[in-house]
Design a protein around this nucleic acid. Sequence first.
DNA 1: TGCAGTCTTCAGAAATCTTTGAAAGTTCGA
DNA 2: TCGAACTTTCAAAGATTTCTGAAGACTGCA
Lengths: 150, 150
Amino acid sequence: MALSGPAEKLALTLAEGGLQRMTARVLAALLFTDQETMTAGEIADTLAISSGSVSTAIKSLATVGLIERVPAPGSRREHFRLREGAWATLMSGQNAMIGSLREAAEEGITVAGAGSLAGARLAEMRDFYDYLWRELPALIDRWRDDKGDQ
Amino acid sequence: MALSGPAEKLALTLAEGGLQRMTARVLAALLFTDQETMTAGEIADTLAISSGSVSTAIKSLATVGLIERVPAPGSRREHFRLREGAWATLMSGQNAMIGSLREAAEEGITVAGAGSLAGARLAEMRDFYDYLWRELPALIDRWRDDKGDQ
DNA sequence: TGCAGTCTTCAGAAATCTTTGAAAGTTCGA
DNA sequence: TCGAACTTTCAAAGATTTCTGAAGACTGCA
């Protein structure tokens, strides 16, 4: 009932990537289960963590669109599953940070002056993140399209 | 002598992106200075942090290739500066994580079995990160090339 | 309306991560 | 080889983050 070694390892890697540890473990549980969906109680049992932690993790995963609640007729408990396209969603979240860095560089140029040494460094930074900001979403869209073609 | 508001803000954003806080501040100091290079002592003064913290931050920034030591004739102190292409380097670091996730998914498929529900989910994950693993470096190379053309 | 089952919230405990400061180490010039 | 000027290391203090557990809220049913 506990998570397998590879599942825990995957959770750890996701945690390095920025997710909270318990959030990452909940995601791993939903990824590795052989059921269609899991209830909060099942997740808590599998991971041996408190229901409070599960609740918090589910809330944050649902907010960013990685998992979804599944209507469960005949049960009062809520069922959850990994969402279609979750990984692309996770990557899009990274894109927000790229936008922040681009903006931070832009503000820096204003303060430092475009002609200064600092301004030149910041301009290089801004240009790079500007490029990613434009190209990364396009890259992800292309994956979605290719997948649709199959 | 302290960092400007935008500089601290940029440091904070970098910290969210995974850098330690002091490491991010050191990077911001080197980005915003109007000198060609800074010494460890200057960085410590600017940020009002201990020399130990500066040493640790410099070590980690140099290890991942974001900054470089600059030979300083006539001085025993070491000088540092942001490296050319630092931002592309930082992004390439992210790529390592994509590789880890791809590999974690692959291992998961082996354990769960390719035909299982879990195996199908893991295959979707693996395919996505495999795609990024191939395309992201190409995207970054394209930026390097375009920049060279100017 | 009352109840049983489930979920959420949140204060405090526990664990983890950061930073410091001082001692030890290194390097260069004489 | 010695000493001065820096740099690095690392144990411990301090700060921050994370998790739990229990109280309270919600939901659907009778």
